[in-house]
C-alpha cells in the first residue's frame, strides 16, 4: 500500500528539522485539524481509510518529535545531527584547578553536556539551541532569566548585557539548559568581551 503521507517525521508535520517544541505542537494541531473527520479540506482528496492512515502517521511523527530524547535519537538515526561526542579529556596544561570530571551519567540518556570547540559567540549558542529544538522561552522558564537578555546574549549585544559577574551566571544557566558544558561555555563566550574585562576571573 502506498504511504498516504511519505517522508520523515518532520516532513509529515510540515516543519523544519530545527523546529522548536512549540512549533512541533502547533504543526501537530494543524495536521490533526486538516486530517480530522470534520475537515472539509481533505475529504474529497482522501478516502476515509487514507485519512485515518494519514492521521496515524501524523500521530507517530508527533510522538517522537514531542519527546526531546526520542527526537534526539531520531535526529541522530536520520543523520540530522551528529551523535553528541564524548567529553574530551581536559588539557593537561590548563591553568587553575582541574575542571570537575563529568558527572556520572544517570542513564544512557540524556546526552552528556557538550563542550564547544573554538570561539563561542551568540550565533554559536543559538545554533546549538536550535539544533536541540529548545526555545528561548523554555530556557527563560527554566532559568528565570528574561527572554530579552537571552536574546541579547545570542545577538552579541554586549553593551546591553549586565555586569560580567551576572552575565557569567546567565551564560552558565543558558548552557545548562541547552545541554552545553556550563563553565567552559561561559568562559569561551566571556573571553570575547574585550571591552568589559571580567573581574571574576
Amino acid at each position: 500500500m502506498v504511504a498516504v503521507l511519505g517522508g520523515n517525521h518532520y516532513e509529515v508535520l510540515g516543519i523544519d528539522a530545527r523546529a522548536t517544541p512549540e512549533q512541533v505542537e502547533r504543526a501537530y494541531r494543524f495536521c490533526l485539524e486538516m486530517y480530522g473527520d470534520s475537515s472539509i479540506a481533505i475529504y474529497s482528496l482522501l478516502d476515509a481509510d487514507e485519512q485515518r492512515r494519514a492521521r496515524s502517521r501524523v500521530q507517530e511523527a508527533y510522538e517522537v518529535l514531542r519527546d526531546p530524547f526520542r527526537r534526539h535519537d531520531y535526529d541522530v538515526s536520520q543523520g540530522f545531527v551528529r551523535a553528541t561526542p564524548p567529553m574530551p579529556a581536559p588539557p593537561r596544561a590548563a591553568a587553575g584547578p582541574v575542571p570537575l570530571p563529568a558527572p556520572p551519567p544517570p542513564a544512557p540518556r540524556p546526552p552528556a553536556p557538550q563542550v564547544l570547540e573554538g570561539p563561542v559567540d551568540g550565533a554559536t549558542l543559538r545554533r546549538c539551541r536550535e539544533e536541540r529544538g529548545i526555545s528561548l522561552k523554555e530556557i527563560a522558564g527554566r532559568t528565570k532569566i528574561g527572554v530579552r537578555y537571552l536574546e541579547y546574549i545570542e545577538a552579541d549585544r554586549h553593551e546591553l548585557l549586565p555586569a560580567p559577574v551576572y552575565l557569567r551566571g546567565f551564560l552558565q544557566e543558558y548552557a545548562r539548559a541547552t545541554g552545553l558544558e556550563p563553565r567552559r561555555t561561559a568562559d569561551a563566550y566571556m573571553s570575547r568581551l574585550r571591552r568589559h574585562p571580567d573581574p571574576t576571573r
Binding site: 503521507l5 510540515g14 494543524f30 485539524e33 486538516m34 475537515s39 472539509i40 479540506a41 481533505i42 482528496l45 482522501l46
Partner: peptide
C-alpha cells in the same frame, strides 16, 4: 478564524496530495 485557516490546509493538501 477556522474558515480562514482552511486556506493553509488547501495549500498544504495541494502540495502533498496533488
Amino acid at each position: 478564524p477556522a474558515d480562514a485557516a482552511i486556506g493553509h490546509q488547501l495549500v498544504t493538501a495541494c502540495a502533498r496530495h496533488l
